[in-house]
Simulated scan of single mutants.
Amino acid sequence: MMRLNLVLLVAVIASAMYLVQIQYQSRRLFVEVEKAQSLSRKLETERERLEVDKRSQATPLRVERLAKEQLQMRTATPAVTQYVKLPKLDAVEGTKP
């Protein structure tokens, strides 16, 4: 009977130690999951902010202003447009259309 009680005591102690170890690992993993979720939320916020910045940087008025100021470009008008005339194909190839 004493031997059975000793075996049961060892089994209970081993089970309790295993339970403590599992709880510790569970808490550690939970903390890691919380950190990962926090980082995910932070990165999602940063991505949304960058999307807003991208949209604000690509407005047509801003692009036009930068083209005029930094690239010294101007709006195309008929006065500054040059048209290029191609030679007729029948004269070049010797065939008639």
Results as ranks from 00 to 15, higher is better:
62 R>M: 09
55 R>L: 13
50 L>F: 12
65 R>L: 07
1 M>A: 08
95 T>S: 06
92 V>R: 07
30 F>V: 10
71 L>V: 01
38 S>N: 14
24 Y>E: 11
36 A>S: 14
15 S>D: 04
93 E>R: 05
52 V>G: 00
88 K>Y: 04
60 P>G: 04
53 D>W: 10
59 T>V: 04
26 S>M: 15
19 L>Q: 10
29 L>A: 14
48 E>V: 10
8 L>V: 01
54 K>N: 10
87 P>R: 08
18 Y>C: 10
42 K>A: 15
2 M>L: 05
5 N>Q: 08
22 I>L: 13
13 I>Y: 06
79 A>I: 01
72 Q>Y: 01
80 V>I: 09
41 R>C: 03
17 M>A: 09
73 M>R: 04
5 N>E: 09
59 T>K: 08
77 T>V: 03
95 T>G: 02
51 E>T: 12
75 T>S: 03
76 A>P: 01
63 V>R: 10
47 R>G: 02
63 V>C: 02
40 S>F: 14
2 M>K: 07
13 I>S: 09
8 L>P: 00
81 T>F: 02
90 D>P: 03
60 P>R: 06
92 V>K: 05
18 Y>A: 11
23 Q>K: 12
71 L>F: 08
25 Q>P: 00
36 A>E: 14
19 L>C: 08
33 V>Y: 14
79 A>D: 07
51 E>Y: 12
90 D>G: 13
68 K>G: 01
69 E>D: 05
86 L>M: 06
71 L>P: 02
83 Y>E: 05
24 Y>Q: 13
51 E>L: 14
6 L>H: 06
11 A>E: 04
42 K>I: 11
25 Q>N: 14
58 A>G: 02
33 V>F: 14
22 I>K: 12
25 Q>V: 09
82 Q>E: 06
43 L>F: 07
16 A>V: 09
31 V>E: 13
87 P>W: 00
94 G>Y: 02
44 E>L: 14
25 Q>Y: 12
31 V>G: 09
57 Q>G: 01
37 Q>I: 12
62 R>C: 03
84 V>L: 10
44 E>C: 06
7 V>D: 07
85 K>T: 07
38 S>F: 10
25 Q>L: 13
64 E>K: 07
52 V>A: 13
56 S>D: 10
24 Y>F: 12
67 A>G: 05
97 P>S: 09
88 K>P: 09
70 Q>W: 02
47 R>N: 14
39 L>P: 08
8 L>T: 02
69 E>K: 05
70 Q>M: 05
48 E>Y: 08
30 F>S: 14
38 S>Q: 15
26 S>R: 13
50 L>C: 05
44 E>Q: 15
8 L>N: 07
20 V>R: 10
82 Q>L: 06
53 D>R: 15
8 L>C: 02
13 I>H: 04
72 Q>I: 02
87 P>I: 01
82 Q>K: 07
39 L>Q: 15
51 E>A: 13
95 T>Q: 04
69 E>G: 00
